[in-house]
Each structure stands twice: as structure tokens, then as C-alpha cells.
Design a protein around this nucleic acid. Structure first.
Lengths: 151, 151
DNA sequence: GCTTGACCTTCCAACGATGGGAAGGCGCAG
DNA sequence: CTGCGCCTTCCCATCGTTGGAAGGTCAAGC
């Protein structure tokens, strides 16, 4: 199988498959005489694993860890469960953060007429000199980053 | 006020303040003879606005829009409300996605002993050749990107 | 006046995961 | 042989943010 076939079969773009290989997440594919990457059913299985883990929101680093555990037939299931539950906790935390943002916005919006009049408490609150109690205080600013934003 | 003072006062790093200036989110600061950026109370207020909007998870582009509306005293409050509620909807969608991931993981983890035995349904499910019904099928794969992952 | 250290400046690179595109090679059907 | 679709590598862009290097400025202490 060529990279395009694998891409279709897994739903991962050829670009990403090459990237995963380059960064060491997956083993370099064997090459045909032409230089084309050739994939086995085993590779297909691995990439499906990657795809599913990716869909569950794991980072590549975490997927790397999971793959290692997957390949290690002697590992304890506790190790796997630990990673999974750690991820669940991270997801919960993130949801909580999003919920706080949402609640604050809904609160502000509920006081906004939403008509043609210019005054709007959303903006005046954001712009006020005073610290606003209603605003979530993201203490760990350093950990809430660009890619955490919702677009 | 120098950039360091403003950074402390707003909680935005000096680096980011320069970046915001470079990308046009905020007006270029006036300069002292030394070349140092000098900030007014007005700038402070603007940056506080940025900081709060950022804490609410708005992207820089959205903050730009909000700033424009903020500065425009004749704008309709409906425009602001629309942006805010649009963001609320995006937050809800993201939370839903995270919840699906979390539910799936919890389901898988509940069937894992979590002891020293090696067999673990989390891994076998991820690695199985069969498509797994329990796994969320992220149809809009193209829209779930790297920065959407939770770390 | 000179040194020291804390600040400031610009520039360049990296992160993570992904997409886009160029320039060129390969495979197969007509 | 030509054409088309696939493959290859390489570089660039995204988004928000941090880090560092190399150098200029300022204020305090000696």
C-alpha cells in the first residue's frame, strides 16, 4: 500500500503520516525501488490506533506513550488506565474553564439590550478600570495559551 | 510608564505587548528619546481590555473586533452581543466535543482492571481492526486541530 | 566618572499539529 | 510517448506565546 491508500484507510492525511514518521511517532516506512513509502497491514493498524487516540484528544506525545504501552505486552494495565484517567481529568479541567468563560459571557450578555443603542455592559465591563468580580480570574495564566482558545 | 510597568499592571508579558503592537491589535506606543516605549493610562486601559477578553477565550481577531466596537461610540449594542453570543456557542460546541471524548475514555477505563495484569480494553479497543461504535466519529476532522487538544 | 545590574531594544527560532504549494520523479493507461 | 495521478522532498504559513542572543539605556552605588 502506498501512502495515499493508507491515508484514505485511516483518515489521516498523507502529510501528517509523513510528519508522524519524521517526528518518530511511527517507524519509517519501508521504501519501494521508486522511493515510494510502502505500508503493511501492521502499519495500518498502528495508524488506526493513532487516529483514534487523536480523536480522543490525546497529544502526539501521549499517543507516543500509549503506543509504547500498546506494543509492550508485559505492561500493567494500570499504566494505561493512569494515562487515560489523567487525560479525563485534563478534559474536565478544560471544560470547567470553558464553562466559566461561557457563564461570564452569558451574564454580561443578559444585561445587554442587543438593539441599536450603543451602550453595552459587555464592553464597559471589559474596559472598566476596576477589577471585575464576575470575570474569571485565570490564575494560571501561564498555562492557558493560544491553542486553548476556541475558534 | 515603560513596557515592564504595563506588563506588570496588566498581566500581559512585555513580549506579547510588543507582538500585539506589531500585529496591529494595539496602536504603536510613543517612544522616549532612548527608544523605549512609553505608555499612557489610556494604553493601560486598552491593554486591560485585551487581557480580560483574552481570559474569556476570545481570539486576537475577535478582540480586535471588540476593540473597534469599544472605541466606536455609535455602534449598536447588538453587534457586541452577537459576537459574545457567537463565542458562547463556540464554547458550548467545544465543551460538547470534550465531553464526548471524556465519556468514551471513562467508558473504556471502566472496563480496565487497572492492576498489574497486562490486558487492557482501552488499548485493545484503540488498536482493534474493527471500527468501534463507542468512539466519537469526528466527522469534521478538518476542523479539529492541534490547538484543540488538551494538554 | 565608572561599574553593575535591571531594564529596554530588535531579530530570530521554537513550540504543536496541520495545510498549502512548488519542483521534480514514478507508474500506468491510452 | 504523452498525460494524468500519484509520489517525493523542501519550504512557508498558521496561532499565540515563550525563549534567547546581541546590544543600548538608565539609575544607583562606589
Amino acid at each position: 500500500m502506498n501512502i495515499g491508500d493508507i491515508a484514505k484507510a485511516t483518515g489521516i492525511s498523507a502529510k501528517m503520516i509523513r510528519y508522524y514518521e519524521e517526528t518518530g511517532l511511527i517507524r519509517p516506512a519501508t521504501r519501494a525501488l521508486s522511493g515510494y513509502r510502502v505500508y503493511s497491514d501492521n502499519d495500518l493498524q498502528t495508524l488506526r490506533f493513532v487516529r483514534r487516540a487523536r480523536d480522543l484528544g490525546f497529544t502526539v506525545k501521549q499517543i507516543d506513550d500509549l503506543l509504547t504501552l500498546w506494543r509492550d505486552r508485559t505492561r500493567a494495565s494500570a499504566s494505561v488506565k493512569e494515562i487515560a484517567l489523567g487525560h479525563v481529568a485534563a478534559l474536565a479541567k478544560k471544560m470547567q474553564e470553558l464553562k466559566e468563560m461561557s457563564d461570564t459571557l452569558l451574564h454580561l450578555a443578559s444585561h445587554c439590550h442587543g438593539d441599536t443603542r450603543p451602550d453595552c455592559p459587555i464592553l464597559t465591563t471589559l474596559g472598566s478600570t476596576e477589577a471585575v468580580a464576575a470575570l474569571p480570574r485565570t490564575r494560571n495564566r501561564s498555562k492557558t495559551r493560544a491553542f486553548d482558545r476556541v475558534r
